[in-house]
Design a protein around this nucleic acid. Structure first.
Length: 589
RNA sequence: GCGCCCGUAGCUCAAUUGGACAGAGUCGCGGACUUCGAAUCCGAAGGUUGCAGGUUCGAGUCCUGCCGGGCGUGCCA
């Protein structure tokens, strides 16, 4: 099933070609901003009129005269300076919804991309031996949703979790573990790091106050680089133990990340030397103040001099710029990426611009390979400052999620005390975690937002609980139907044509149709808030329909139609929340 | 200093990338439960889009200059 905008765009484009001779021009078809203007509008005629120096209204009239859309719309109208307004015919709405119903198990009739790409998405990137904190939330869930959306429209997605599992801090961690738990060398599984944060702090503290220990830590860094067997065993153990801490968080967040997606800093460690050497051989890298630097065009420092991307420090150590360059090369060469997406906060903007520039200078990515930094804003506390605990520490992601689930549970207890404990617990998880994720997604990705349990867990407004409630209400209709011996499958099987009469049902029907269009626009700019806005409006339209149009008690003439609307609404909300955003829906709450 | 992002209703935010009368939510106000789940719905109110110019049929969106804020800016990631 083709999306309605797509069909209209093509038809109008053809008509434009007939009238003006201009081929493949975009008539800019959009959902109408105002119901008075119809359902869709074409905004592109004015620009064409300008280009061809004709009267825009007259041109619009001529285009309409050549336009064949009788199967979709009632006669098109010219409005204002040269808009073309289009109103869908009920038969067409009916046809599209029936097509969606036939594809319930699939993409709801949504057509996949004609040009599938291999897209590498780099996201989450937790630090090993530290707890995940609120700073990892956005990259993890935004990245995850980007993957889900790109996959759903037919691209091949390769996830890359660039974990921080290498570097000088591992010297002290390994030395600490060897000193306190020497048995870890021969029997790693005997030692568990129950509290990562404490482990890290202890190691750091000892490093600061004990000179001998600091020296041991330095030696471990060298042994790490030389792949010393004992050291590597302890290192591997720290990584494995850390995974035991962050994997459950991924699972709770429904972030589809696993060990197989990890390509951390350690993976690139032995590729860094050649990055520097190759850049030197190409004459792109040179020494400056003892460090090896590349000076990509167009970047200036405070004094107006060329700004360096430092790829090797004066002490010989490599930096994250080096690792990122190695990663780009790997992703282009080995993973055959057509596009590489980095999901990190906006502060790393300059870094990635420079890394991308250097990768292109070196010819490590093809001309048409897209390098894309998808940025996001910060999570702020109620005071509008970066979200921290009272003692000024980063808020642990685990604590954050626990807090949300606890609050959700107390609401469930209050609203539905008669449910059994396990059901309540499951609802609380879905609502609590869902609220945190939904609040993030529903904000503009690029702006900062203030984290508030009260707002995200509110029943009213554009929140996860509201969406989940709407879903639960639709679902309760099917339960009720069963209890009343109404066979939904039979009724829908007998449905040949929709009987759309009430304003609320027409409104809902038209809106459901645009589901696929929204997925597309969300995918183009990785804007999850387009999707949440659609789902919210859908839920509102459903709620309005629900209060105005009885379903099970409806006349025979309209009951099947209404059952279909319910089914498609549930499917859109369910698929949107669960499959595209990774937010659980519940049958009852 | 330079670079990036931002400034929209009392508050929190949208605005599909230059489209028609700038929309939601929330707070406060007024209505609706004997009727499929009221965690709901319906209604009214709320605006000089930071300021000043410019580009054009048309600007919250693009350009210029101010004002205010955040972030970044040579050896952390």
């Amino acid at each position: 099933m083709k999306q309605t905008v797509e069909i209209l765009r093509q038809r109008i484009s053809n008509a434009i070609t007939e009238v003006t001779g201009i081929e493949n021009c975009d008539p800019i078809v959009r959902l109408s901003t105002n119901p008075d203007f119809g359902d869709y509008q074409a905004n592109g005629v004015m620009a064409i009129a300008k280009k061809t120096k004709t009267n825009p209204r007259k041109l619009a009239e001529e285009i309409i005269a050549k336009l064949s859309i009788e199967d979709i719309c009632s006669p098109a109208e010219v409005a204002g300076p040269g808009f073309i307004n289009l109103r869908l015919k009920p038969e067409f709405i009916s046809k599209q919804l029936m097509a969606m119903e036939k594809d319930l198990g699939g993409t709801l009739g949504f057509e996949k991309t004609k040009k599938p790409q291999t897209i590498v998405v780099d996201f989450s990137g937790p630090n090993i031996a530290k707890q995940m904190h609120v700073g990892h939330l956005r990259s993890t869930i935004i990245g995850d949703s980007i993957c889900r959306i790109l996959e759903s429209i037919g691209h091949k997605v390769i996830k890359q979790n660039h974990i921080g599992d290498w570097g000088t801090q591992f010297g002290m961690l390994i030395a600490y573990l060897k000193q306190d738990n020497p048995e870890v060398i021969d029997n790693p599984d005997s030692v568990h790091l129950s509290d990562l944060e404490q482990f890290y702090k202890n190691a750091k503290a000892r490093c600061d106050e004990d000179a001998d220990f600091a020296e041991a830590a330095r030696k471990e860094v060298i042994k790490l680089h030389n792949k010393d067997a004992d050291t590597m065993r302890v290192w591997q153990h720290i990584v494995d133990e850390s995974r035991l801490h962050y994997q459950p968080t991924y699972d709770r967040l429904k972030a589809d990340l696993h060990q197989e997606n990890e390509r951390g800093e350690s993976f690139y460690a032995d590729k860094l030397e050649s990055i520097v050497e190759d850049l030197r051989k190409m004459g792109l890298a040179k020494e400056s103040d003892g460090a090896i630097c590349v000076f990509p065009d167009g970047f200036k420092n405070k004094e107006g001099n060329p700004l360096p991307l430092i790829i090797r420090k004066s002490d010989g150590a490599f930096l994250y710029a080096t690792t990122d360059l190695a990663a780009i090369r790997y992703r282009a060469d080995e993973l055959k990426a057509d596009k590489i997406i980095y999901v990190t906060d906006a502060r790393q903007n300059l870094h990635f611009e420079m890394v991308f520039a250097v990768a292109r200078m070196a010819g490590w990515v093809k001309e048409d390979t897209e390098l894309c930094h998808v940025t996001f804003g910060s999570v702020l506390g109620e005071d509008g400052k970066p979200f921290k605990t009272r003692s000024g520490e980063n808020v642990k992601l685990k604590d954050l999620l626990d807090g949300a689930v606890t609050r959700a549970l107390s609401v469930v207890e209050e609203k539905n005390p008669e449910l059994d404990a396990e059901t309540k617990s499951n609802i609380a998880k879905a609502v609590g975690i869902g609220a945190v994720k939904y609040a993030d997604y529903s904000n503009n990705r690029t702006s900062d937002y203030i984290f508030s349990f009260d707002k995200m867990l509110a029943m009213e407004g554009n929140t996860a609980p509201y969406m989940q409630y709407a879903y639960a209400r639709v679902k309760s209709i099917s339960r009720k139907a069963k209890a009343n011996n109404i066979n939904i499958e039979n009724e829908l099987a007998g449905l040949k044509d929709l009987n759309l009469v009430e304003p609320a049902e027409i409104d809902l029907a038209k809106y459901i149709m645009s589901y696929g269009e929204i997925i597309n626009s969300a995918a183009v700019d990785y804007r999850m808030n387009y999707l949440t806005a659609f789902l919210y409006e859908l839920a509102q339209k459903f709620s309005s329909f629900y209060t105005n149009c009885p379903v099970l008690k409806a006349s025979d003439k309209s009951r099947a139609t209404r059952l279909l609307l319910c089914r498609l609404t549930a499917k859109c909300i369910g698929q949107g929340l669960s499959n595209l955003l990774g937010i659980d829906v519940v049958e009852q709450m």
